[in-house]
């Protein structure tokens, strides 16, 4: 929690950090109290393997990543069950996590979460696993919808309890 940690972040993960900061004051858009909204977050045809795309869910202050993996995954959708989405906030102390090589890595204390294995902490400090976003694929259009979250988004008392 040194100041330098934060500075380093700004350098190393500016994209996701900016997203997190932007979201801080966000009001839940579309999030009816105690009910997850269904939000279109992209189209499966636009996803490239290993290249995460960011979105906010269930509200503006909760950045998430959707990514197409190399192989099938717990909770994966699509013909190869390989499209998954997770909260972008590290469940350890809330720093942004970055995707590479099948996992999300946190630059603060180096927790690593396996994207194919339910966002499990396989190394690092987070005793809670990464929160995974439930996805639905509309086969005809290829649209992907976020429709819920399994696990608690960091820094909240409830996923839908942010004013």
């Amino acid at each position: 929690m040194s100041p330098l940690n934060r500075r380093e972040f700004l350098q190393t993960s500016s994209a996701s950090l900016a997203l997190a900061v932007l979201g801080l004051s966000g009001k839940a858009d579309g999030a009816a109290a105690n009910k997850y909204p269904s939000i279109r977050i992209g189209n499966i045809r636009d996803l490239k393997t290993g290249e995460p795309v960011q979105f906010n869910y269930p509200d503006k202050s909760s950045p998430c990543n959707v990514v197409m993996l190399n192989g099938n995954a717990v909770g994966g959708i699509g013909p190869f069950s390989n499209v998954v989405a997770f909260s972008a906030l590290c469940p350890h102390m809330g720093c942004p996590v970055n995707y590479s090589n099948g996992r999300f890595v946190c630059g603060c204390h180096y927790s690593m979460f396996d994207a194919a294995k339910n966002g499990q902490t396989y190394q690092g400090l987070a005793s809670q696993w990464l929160a995974q976003v439930s996805l639905r694929l509309d086969k005809a259009s290829g649209n992907i919808y976020a429709e819920g979250i399994e696990g608690l988004v960091y820094g909240r008392i409830g996923n839908l309890n942010i004013s």
Binding site: S62, C95, C108, G155, N161, S163
Partner: peptide
């Protein structure tokens, strides 16, 4: 607790 808490708080 009504706000999203910042990282490393």
């Amino acid at each position: 607790l009504s706000m999203q808490s910042p990282m490393l708080s």
